[in-house]
Design a protein around this nucleic acid. Structure first.
Lengths: 219, 219
DNA sequence: TCCCGCGCTGTGACCCTGCTGAGAACCGAT
DNA sequence: ATCGGTTCTCAGCAGGGTCACAGCGCGGGA
């Protein structure tokens, strides 16, 4: 689990980093709001611990900006203010939890775990064409309910075809998208892999359109 | 939005009902743990406000029971105990937030809104996949009922994989989330730790998908 | 019917990916 | 300072995925 800690107070920042790393988290630290925002934008973080009082850009603004950009990573806010309205403001800005300093490390950890527990389990759609199913996340392919084991290249080829259901896809297009552009592969490679695929998913499920390309049959 | 309030103290219960109804929520009240559990089981609630000290069944037990039954509605715990460990216990039981009495009504509302905003289905406090169980709070792993001792890195690796049940996770993604970004680790490190993990949890429980990544086997 | 060319497949070699053991660097505890 | 454990790098090895090649089948046009 990768965490982003945005905290300008150096002592607290290092304490947090140490403690969280000991728990097995991968931790990055930003020292002000602008840096934090930038890192949250581009890094793949599982959660963020965000101080409110920060140089350059306040914690409130950081969350609001992230939410405006459709970034939904869990945010735990830290603040020295313990006014009830400050807390409510932080939460209404889009933070998911709020702790006031001084806080207990045990509580911080428990709250962090509670946040991580609510990961977004939205699984990307499974692609289907006829009785052929392909799940990009699980990297599994089933034909008529039976699982079929494909190599990396075979999988990539089938995925490209199944994303263009019913269309005829030319060999050059397949070469461009399924194979590495850099090394010029023999055009014949496509034919070879079409052959492999046919043996595994059934000969008639992948038809040749002479002079044009290939197409997934049925639907 | 339909809320369930489980609170035995009559004065507080009515105050909550009134206040929340004024905010436009539909509110049901239960006066003890057993009733609350029963209502949460059968009613379609969007969130639950749950006191810890309750007749017949404590709030801790109510959450734990609900989670065991795969009910993931957001739970906000209320308690007179303000010990840090009480709070951590409540969260690790599966609650999503925790407020200590006396609390500010404004804060309660803000936290409730934050919970509802997330709306997403929650996940259990203890993660399970096949006969592998991982408890992030206690930092314990059991395989087929037998406890297995893991190092920090091994644990983090397994945790990341078990949070993506059945999915294939690439080496670069594992590097990003399990290892620290700062120091550039050799890509080979993932392979090494997969090897360690396999020795401890059983070779066949962690399968390689050549050219793609790794996946927890079984389900 | 014959001929041409596109597409298919079996074979075999290369090399890339992933696995492992050994050992160095590091850290905390005694 | 020493020791045990953890983390990580490195090098070597095995397996098999990838691909080039060559020969053959088959379809389509004249």
């Amino acid at each position: 689990m990768r965490l982003l800690v945005v905290e300008d107070e150096a002592r607290l920042a290092t304490a947090l980093r140490r403690g969280l790393q000991a728990e097995g988290f991968a931790v990055d630290v930003a020292a002000d709001g602008a840096d934090g925002l930038e890192m949250a934008r581009h890094g793949e973080y599982d959660a963020m611990i965000l101080d409110v009082m920060l140089p350059r850009l306040s914690g409130y603004r950081v969350v609001r900006q992230l939410r405006a950009e459709q970034k939904w990573l869990p945010v735990l806010m830290l603040s020295a203010k313990d006014g009830e309205y400050d807390q409510a403001d932080g939460l209404d800005c889009g933070a998911d939890d709020y702790l006031t300093k001084p806080f207990s490390y045990v509580v911080l950890l428990a709250r962090l775990r509670a946040l991580l527990r609510r990961g977004t389990p939205q699984r990307p759609a499974v692609l289907r064409h006829g009785d052929v199913e392909l799940d990009p996340a699980q990297r599994k392919v089933t034909v008529g309910g039976a699982e079929v084991v494909l190599t990396a290249r075979e999988f990539a080829l089938l995925e490209y075809l199944i994303r263009r259901p019913g269309e005829v896809v030319s060999k050059t297009e397949l070469l461009d998208h399924v194979w590495d552009a850099a090394l010029d592969t023999a055009a014949n490679a496509v034919e070879v892999y079409v052959g492999y695929l046919r043996r595994k998913i059934g000969r008639d499920r992948l038809e040749t359109v002479r002079g044009a390309g290939y197409r997934l049959a049925g639907g």
